[in-house]
């Protein structure tokens, strides 16, 4: 990409942000989340793992989100957990994006037997209740962060593959594809460099929705005891642990990590339209 094109792309991103205040807010919230993920551990007032004798204190000036049953600061734990949850969701989405794109391109472009086998395979994954499938994968492979990422990636791949398959399939006979063949491109180059990029706008919408699901999914697995283990700070575990205390009036243990989780999912979902407009050249004037 030449510098002129880079500038026009940056200009276009700026235009999309100015045009749509919702996109602007979403990107602002994403920046805050990324900031927490990168700098969170060095900024928080307390060690997220250190217990103290101030147990189950309600929110106050020195502990904004209160403290838990071991006297750990909930605010510090919530902020520090951002990194782990973001790594899981971005990792899982990136994996399923790549796997889904490859499978979808093969199925959509070459069709025939490839298409039948890939599509039926994906249908099989979709036929399971996806969360139960993820539980099964983590339970079988072992209780680690990597396996949570793999499990989340597996259950999300069919969505990407289906979008890409449809987008590639409708463009297979397009004029610009034939022109690319006339220009001496091999089939692989045609599909990877000419057809696939045109599938990016709808894919971006899928990515943003999926990021939210991935965060929820990771938190959900931790909530039921699969995936991340205590005492590691993670939103799902914190909600799970806090749930026991809601009944006795210590609501802050579950509510704050839950709110943070909701905010993250909300941010990702709002990103969709903006991301789509950014990667769609037709939006440029």
């Amino acid at each position: 990409m030449s510098t002129a094109e880079q500038q026009s792309f940056i200009g276009h991103v700026g235009y999309v942000l100015r045009q749509n205040p919702v996109t602007m807010i979403a990107f602002g919230m994403l920046a805050a989340l990324v900031f927490c993920a990168v700098f969170g551990p060095s900024l928080v007032p307390y060690d997220p793992l250190a217990s103290s004798d101030k147990i189950l204190q309600p929110p106050n000036a020195s502990h904004w989100f209160g403290t838990d049953h071991l006297g750990r600061d909930v605010f510090s734990r919530v902020v520090v957990a951002t990194r782990l949850d973001m790594v899981i969701s971005i990792g899982a989405v990136a994996l399923s994006f790549v796997a889904g794109s490859i499978l979808g391109c093969v199925a959509g472009y070459w069709g025939g037997w490839f298409d039948s086998i890939i599509s039926r395979g994906l249908d099989m994954i979709m036929a399971f209740p996806l969360f139960v499938l993820a539980m099964g994968i983590v339970a079988a492979l072992g209780n680690t962060v990597e396996n949570v990422i793999y499990a989340t990636a597996v259950i999300n791949t069919p969505f990407y593959a289906r979008v890409v398959r449809a987008e590639v399939n409708i463009r297979r006979e397009a004029g610009f594809v034939q022109a690319a063949k006339l220009a001496g491109n091999s089939d692989l180059r045609v599909v990877a460099l000419h057809i696939f990029p045109n599938a990016l706008p709808p894919m971006m919408v899928q990515v943003s929705l999926n990021m939210g699901w991935a965060v929820l999914n990771a938190a959900g697995l931790s909530f039921i005891g699969l995936g991340v283990r205590p005492p590691t700070p993670e939103w799902g575990i914190m909600v799970a642990e806090g749930a026991n205390y809601i009944i006795s009036g210590e609501w802050w243990l579950a509510v704050f990590p839950g709110l943070w989780l909701m905010l993250a999912v909300f941010t990702f979902n709002l990103l969709g339209d903006g991301l789509r407009d950014m990667v769609d050249p037709r939006q440029r004037r």
Binding site: A174, F176, A179
Partner: peptide, 14 residues
């Protein structure tokens, strides 16, 4: 080489 019928369709939109 070939020139296609629909100029819009034959140019990659990206």
């Amino acid at each position: 080489q070939m020139v296609f019928q629909d100029a819009t369709d034959s140019l990659n939109p990206r």
